[in-house]
Amino acid sequence: MTDTLQFFIDQQAVPFQPGQTLMQAAQAAGLYIPHLCFHDGLTPHGSCRVCIVEINGSIRAACTTPATANLQVHSETSALRTQRRQLIELLFAEGNHLCPSCEVSGNCQLQALAYDLGMTHYEFVPLDPHRQNDGSHPDLFIEQDRCIFCELCTRSAQQQDHKNVFGIGGRGADTYLFAQADSSRLADTAITAQDHAAHICPVGCILPKQGSYQIPIGQRVYDEQPIHLRGNHRPDEQDATP
């Protein structure tokens, strides 16, 4: 018998290396666990909570839970699917996620997860945020009301581009994404359109100023294929070598 370390997701064996999280091992094994704030080239974060799994009756985020040998993990249960859908619904209700008026519709990972998890609507009262947008940068635009606070951009800038570009400020309902400059303007940071961080936003918050409609609505990434098959990929993402 092999002495490979393994745990189980919905009875399926998943091999892992010591130090890997459940998500990292699952991703390496080609098993999709829905997520937004996880990226395999960046440190785990655990803020979106969409990757919740059940272990011994309690709910954990797969992206921050270390893999241990022979762990029994439940992922595709109807209860978890419902809660994941509710989390997606909360994110929709929280921000300005009005798909028909958004440039990334069809390429958006939040929207793709909504499709995949069977969301048609949400019952929550929309929160209608009202944050200051930032159009200062020549190549990039920040539509603040669409931020889901996943901090992929923050981490990508630090860990892949080695630049201090983004940060999260405030708290609770008043949490906001900001540019690390006295002016709080993106133009005054070192980010360029070629940086990893400029191509990692999973929603329509950090947008390129050019080329948004080159591929028409209806023919985009998640129009063609559901996210559980396609994975969390932007059509323009950069090579993820850190």
Binding site: N96, L98, P100, S101, T120, H121, P126, D128, H130, D145
Partner: peptide, 11 residues
């Protein structure tokens, strides 16, 4: 379902 384009005025 969620206000759509007219809801852009909610700002």
């Amino acid at each position: 379902i969620n206000g759509g384009v007219p809801a852009l005025r909610n700002r």
